[in-house]
Structure formats: structure tokens, C-alpha cells
Design a protein around this nucleic acid. Structure first.
Lengths: 340, 340
DNA sequence: AGAGCGTTCCAAAGCGCTTTGGCTGAATTG
DNA sequence: CAATTCAGCCAAAGCGCTTTGGAACGCTCT
């Protein structure tokens, strides 16, 4: 059932039927009702390919998926997607993932914009002076960055959590508990969120006249194994840290294992705080010793990004509005006063 | 730069240019070269929306993403996606995720097929007599099921791993080690893979004249917490199992924690085997006691599904070919002889 | 020489929608 | 009452591609 048939059986022109369906004002309400009714009764659905060719709008939002043998997609992604999908569903938006060589995402961005394949895109895990952000900005497609870049000479719309504040608070807590030797097991330092977390921690330490030594900070991919290795290295030093802040629950798993292997205890020998993106399948309260966390639901972020993307597509949101969410510090049993 | 302009500047008709570009035989090789050349030089890219309207082909593969507040997307999904994306990239295929109410995916399948939004779809985590499989089969769009359904009165193309064989082997190993009381911590029993694993285990037990008691099998969502709870329940019985097979590494994490909490040891008091989908961020060899696993890379499966999907789209693959991958049994320190 | 044939190209008709520009007749205005 | 206005409808022109149904040309074959 296409527009032609539908309009024919209503003895109306395609124009009128199209307008009636799309809510244009220049059609009699009585006629509109008739049209709507017939459309529903016959299950008419405008062909998206045709509509898209005519309007250039696709009803989809895009994401460029970095791929490659050595490229691992972050498990956070799926939670983010959950939230995004949840909102997108309610608004009949589809999401298109365009796989790209991780070393050359630009070509793909250019392609999907040139082809008008999607109405908007989002960018995640931005790095400082991220070229993707710059590119997408000049290409002029609606977009939102999940996270923040830095050192770009223009403003752009983003949604980020207060990573600096979160780790500042975490460090401040540890300092208040008397810890002097803190360490940070961070995500790879090419990503802005990791930089912000380090910054927050340094700021807290500076307030107490302390610094974060070069050797007390690890920047690694967020796997259990890397968490373990980093923790071992830190704890086997001559003057090991008495408290560690860790950028992910998964790495924290490794830290806990290292602590055990070394015959140490949490929080007796080591206080531990980690960032929690809120996975349904791994919860900080279920750690051997309930884990203190800085918590922010990445799923909610996904939903919010979808919401703002939709708003930008329909012109309800404009400009370079940045949105930063505060992060909860949740204190559980994994932190205690510094050992004497 | 569109076809009209390009053909005009070549003083050729759109027909000829189109045919030259698409490799049709009825165009002079010399002309084809000229066209190809000009196209490349001017960076001509056919508009996908137009092409799609004309041909009905979209160059995308689809996946219906179940969403909802209470719906958690499996973290396996992201690994599968990695593999799929990796292959799709090389073939210029995009992936469109259509979010759907988890209770009503059918509407969405109908929509994407009716709208010809994608050239093929894949279905994951099938359940017995899965309605999605039946639906998609009658709708006549190319598809592949990742996993298997059961009790359907027709054949269909799928890619699955030998879950039954894997757990049969795992159980057989445990039996050989003298274990008599085995337990299974499985994924939710609505999914076929869980049923197959249970079946494999039962079969192995039957061979030794044993059975898997009702209380010795847990069917739960695969979270760390559920693994913990299941293990506690099992181990606190009067005659606790001496060996557990577990359907995921994440649940195994919980099992290990439970064992510790109860003051037991692996493999002294309990032998443990788990299924490993091969995540980059959590590896069985890094468990406190290296975990024995049944191993199969879900990432490779993703790549293979993409490959077969592409083959079906282009007509290279036809019919209802089922493909079952064998699963490696990797023995590590977490299994030992049954306690005396 | 004319029929027959394969090669190479083209004009034009879709694909199914949106949108422009214009037409009608009734209501409003001076 | 003629002149405007306006609500409500329509025909037709795109959007940019693919594909159908020839047409023109140079050959070979009888």
C-alpha cells in the first residue's frame, strides 16, 4: 500500500494525503480524519526510502564504530546503548553503526554525512583535541559528544560526567582518612576522562601539599589483568600506596586479586575506591569487601544523549550546550583510615 | 556531484555511466575506464537513498535490539559486535540496530522488512520455538540465527557452537576425576543454549548412571551476583556438589567469591568449569585459581555471521545450512580429583 | 544487396515520497 | 456589488538512482 493507492481510494490527491498525514495546517480537519483513518485501517506506512530521498532525513542516528583486530569495544558501550535504545525506541529512531578502521574514522564520518545516511551522530570516548569532533562540527551535522574533548577552539554540545570532581572527592575522602600515599589506576591517558580524573586527584592532593608521583599513576586499558598488574607493581614498591583510586570496576577486580595474592587486606592495608558505571552484571556492593565508588549510570547517559540528539534533529536544541552531571561518591567498606 | 552531472560532463547518458560503474557487460571497456576514472577523480559516490529507492537494497544488515527498563543487554553482545563490525567494514556494510519493546519484537521485524530498511537480519539468543525465527522465515528476508532454536517445523540457517558437546565434555572430565555430585549454574532456561548445556551434562551423567537433581541446577540471568547466590545455595546444602559447571565467566566470579566466603577452596573442595566467550577484559587464566573453561570466541562468531549474511545477500549462500562449531575444553587449575 | 546479429549506447519510465505553485469557490471586506 | 482574501485542494516537478525497451552501427552471412 503506497501513497498513490491510498490517495486514489480516497479520491484525493497525493499532496493532500501526504499533508494530512504529516500534520500540515492547510487541510480540512474532517478530511484529515478521513485520511488518518484510512491510513490506519489499511496499515499504510510511508516508504522510508522514498521519504528519505525526498527530504534527506533518515530517521536514524549514527555512530562510527572503531573496529580492527586489535581494537576492543568497551563493555561500557553496551550499557550506554541500552539507554540510548530505550529512548530511541519511543521516538522511532534507529541507530546505525558504521564500522570504521580504528585508524581512520574520518573517512567514515565524511561518508555518512555526505550520503545523509543519518540525521545526527554521537561521538564517544573523545580524546584531547579530538579530530572527530572538529570534523563533525565543520561538516554541520547535528551531533553530541559523550564525554568531552579539550583544547578545541570552538564550543560544541556534549554530555559528560564530572570526572574531575568525582576523583577529587574520592581523593579528598582518602586524605581525610589520613592516607598520604595515594595511587591512581587509570584508563589510557589518551582519553579525556582519564585526564580529568587524574586532574581531580592531583588537585585534592595539592590542597594537602602532596603530589601524585610519576610511579603512582598507571594508565592502561581497562581490563582485569591490567588492574592486577598495576596493583602488583604499586604494592611491591618499597613505599607502597595505602590507597588506590581505580577507573573501573573491572580493573578493581584485578586490584582485589593482587591484594590477596600479596597477602594484604582491604581496607586494612589498602583502601580502594573505583569508578562505577553501573553494570547490571557486576556490582560494587558484591565485592569481597564492598567497594566504595564514584557512581554514575552510563545507561542514563545513553538515554539522555538520545534525547538531546532527537531534540537537535527537530531543532528544539541548538548551540553548544555542555552538560555535566555530578557524580555520587558512595562510601562502602573498602576504605578505612590509613594504616599506622 | 550526482550521476546527472557526471554523465553530462562525460557526454554520456546516465544509463551508460550507471552501467559502467556497476560492472554491467554491455559497455565498452574503454568507455568504462573513462567513466571509472572520472568518477574517481571527482569523488563521485552514488547517493544511497536514491539507489535504495530504485533497487530496494540498502547495504545494511539489521538487528532488533530488545530494550526496556528491566532489559539488560548482554555484555557478550559487544564482543559479537566487534567481530561483526570487523567483517562488515571490509564489505561496506552498515549495521542498523532497531530498538524494540522486549515484549514485542515482532512489530519491529515486520517494520524493517516491510520498509526494506535492511538487506538481512540476524537473530541472537533464540529460545525454543522462537517466534522471531518463524516470523523472519516467512517474511522472506535473508537471515541467520546466532544460536539455535528448537522444535520449529522448518529448517533455517544458523551458526551455533556445540553447547551440548562442550558441557558433555566438561562433565565427563569431572566424572573421570571421580566427582559424583555435580551441579550446573546455567543461564536462564528460556534460552536454547542453556537447554543444550544442561542436556550435555545430563547425558554425561547418565553414562555414569548419575542424574542431575532438580536442586543441583540453577537457571538465572548471568550476573556475578546470581553466580554467588546460586553457589551459596548449592554449597550450603547437606550434600553439596563437589564440582560445578557454570555458563559464564561473570557468574564464575560470583562462584569463586561464594567459595571463599564459605571458607572452602578451589579445587580442593570444589572443582569449577565455566564457559568462556573470550572477553578481552576478563580472562579465565587470571582467576585466583586459573579457571578451566569451555572456550569459544564469540567475536569470531560475529565475524562469521557477518560473512554468511553478506553471502546470503549476494545470493552466494542459500538454503538452511546450519553450522555448529566445536568448543575447546581448556583444563586449568580449577579442577581436581573429587575430595575423599 | 539485404537479412540477421551482436555491440554499444540512449531516452524515458519508474521507485514513492515531499513540495512548489496555482486553482477553485466561498466568505469577507469596503 | 465588485474586490479581496483565504481555506482547501490539486497537478506536476523534483529527489538521484536503476532498468526497460529500443535505436544505431558495423559486421558477417547467404
Amino acid at each position: 500500500m503506497n501513497l498513490k493507492q491510498l490517495s486514489h481510494m480516497l479520491s484525493l490527491s497525493q499532496t493532500t494525503v501526504s499533508r494530512a498525514l504529516n500534520g500540515y495546517p492547510e487541510v480540512n480537519e474532517e478530511t484529515r480524519r478521513r485520511v488518518m483513518d484510512a491510513a490506519k485501517r489499511h496499515g499504510y506506512r510511508p516508504n522510508p526510502s522514498a521519504r528519505r530521498l525526498a527530504t534527506g532525513k533518515s530517521g536514524m542516528i549514527g555512530y562510527v564504530l572503531p573496529t580492527g583486530n586489535a581494537v576492543d569495544i568497551d563493555p561500557h558501550f553496551v550499557e550506554f546503548l541500552s539507554g540510548l535504545g530505550d529512548y530511541a525506541r519511543a521516538h522511532e529512531l534507529d541507530l546505525v553503526l558504521s564500522p570504521a578502521d580504528a585508524d581512520d574514522e574520518e573517512t567514515t564520518y565524511r561518508r555518512i554525512v555526505a550520503n545523509r545516511q543519518v540525521d545526527a551522530v554521537y561521538i564517544s570516548s573523545p580524546r584531547p583535541a579530538d579530530r572527530r569532533v572538529a570534523l563533525v562540527n565543520t561538516l554541520g551535522i547535528p551531533f553530541i559528544v559523550h564525554g568531552r574533548s579539550e583544547g578545541l577552539d570552538f564550543d560544541y554540545p556534549y554530555l559528560d560526567i564530572d570526572n574531575e570532581g568525582a576523583f577529587h572527592e574520592a581523593a579528598r575522602l582518602l586524605l581525610q582518612l589520613g592516607h598520604k600515599r595515594l595511587a591512581l589506576i587509570n584508563g589510557t591517558d589518551r582519553e579525556t576522562f582519564a585526564i580529568h580524573r587524574e586532574r581531580g586527584m592531583r588537585r585534592a592532593l595539592a590542597t594537602s601539599g602532596l603530589t601524585l608521583g610519576e610511579r603512582h599513576i598507571c594508565s592502561v586499558a581497562m581490563t582485569e589483568e591490567n588492574g592486577y598488574r598495576a596493583a602488583r607493581r604499586l604494592l611491591e614498591e618499597s613505599e607502597p600506596p595505602t590507597a588506590i583510586a581505580c577507573s573501573s570496576l573491572i580493573m578493581a577486580l584485578g586490584v582485589v586479586r593482587a591484594v590477596r595474592d600479596l597477602g594484604l587486606t582491604i581496607p586494612g592495608d589498602l583502601s580502594l575506591v573505583a569508578h562505577d558505571d553501573v553494570f547490571p552484571w557486576l556490582r560494587p556492593e558484591n565485592f569481597p569487601v564492598p567497594l566504595s565508588t564514584t557512581r554514575s549510570s552510563i545507561r542514563l547517559a545513553g538515554a539522555r544523549v538520545a534525547e538531546r540528539l532527537a531534540a537537535r534533529i527537530s531543532g528544539l536544541e541548538e548551540g553548544a550546550r555542555g552538560e555535566v552531571w555530578p557524580v555520587d561518591l558512595v562510601v562502602r567498606g573498602s576504605v578505612a583510615g590509613a594504616p599506622v
